[in-house]
Amino acid sequence: MAEFVAVISKSGEPLYFHSSSDTKRVRHEFLALMALDAFEARDYGDCGLLLVHSNIAVYGFKTHTGVKIAFAIDASTIASPSDVSKSLKILNRAYSGVSCNPFYVPPDKIHSAKFQGVVDSVMNYWN
């Protein structure tokens, strides 16, 4: 079960947030914030598992421009590392697509329909 997807700028500003449920959103945002600390210590690329809290596992990807992508699933989900890794790569590619849009100026908030479409398909996969 997918929980949330977050995209956070190099300086820690939220650029995008999608939560699987409105009631859990506050908790999700808190977890994304916690994940920031875990991101700090990591190098660029697939950061793997960042933290597990409240039965939610948060995975992360840091782009080489310092943008952080967090992807969280229910910790009791049986998650194949390959599927997690692919999900992160897919989200990274989708983010690259956004940043290559000439009308997107970092660090704007992300309002892309294409990006939302990718997030939806990744989250649907895990549900």
Binding site: D83, K86, S87, K89, I90, R93, A94, S96, G97, V118, S121, V122, Y125
Partner: peptide, 11 residues
Amino acid sequence: MTSIYNRSLHR
């Protein structure tokens, strides 16, 4: 997952 992954490749 693989199909979403493949579709996401930048052409």
